[in-house]
């Protein structure tokens, strides 16, 4: 009875997931570019703190993207395995 509605919701959810994954990639690329600009500017005029902050920022960004694309699907799989049958 609920299957047609479920299909619609799941299709919408898949679209939303793809959209957000794409947006995350774009944000991460722009952020990476910004940090690289910051790092090179810092290196150019001898701002070692600025450069090191930029390197840390790039590493943090990579970790967040890896977390989103590797860890989140695993969490989803785990929750899917836990999805309960009706207890009544």
């Amino acid at each position: 009875m609920f299957q047609p509605i479920m299909d619609q919701i799941l299709a919408l959810s898949r679209d939303a997931w793809a959209f957000m994954a794409g947006l995350l990639i774009i944000v991460a690329l722009l952020g990476g570019m910004y940090y690289i600009l910051q790092g090179t500017a810092g290196a150019a005029f001898g701002g070692s703190r600025m450069t090191s902050m930029a390197i840390v920022g790039v590493v943090g960004l990579v970790i967040i993207v890896l977390f989103a694309f590797l860890f989140l699907p695993q969490i989803g799989e785990m929750l899917k395995n836990f999805q309960p049958q009706p207890p009544f």
């Binding site: 919701i9 959810s13 957000m20 995350l24 910004y34 969490i75 999805q83």
Partner: peptide
């Protein structure tokens, strides 16, 4: 059937919300 549908929607929504929060973490960190 309603339980199964609600559980499926819950799972889909939880994953989308997690992705949205991660997007927020990335942009806020930047």
């Amino acid at each position: 059937e309603a339980w199964m549908a609600l559980a499926g929607v819950f799972l889909a929504f939880a994953l989308l919300a997690g992705m949205a929060q991660l997007l927020r973490v990335g942009s806020a960190g930047m």
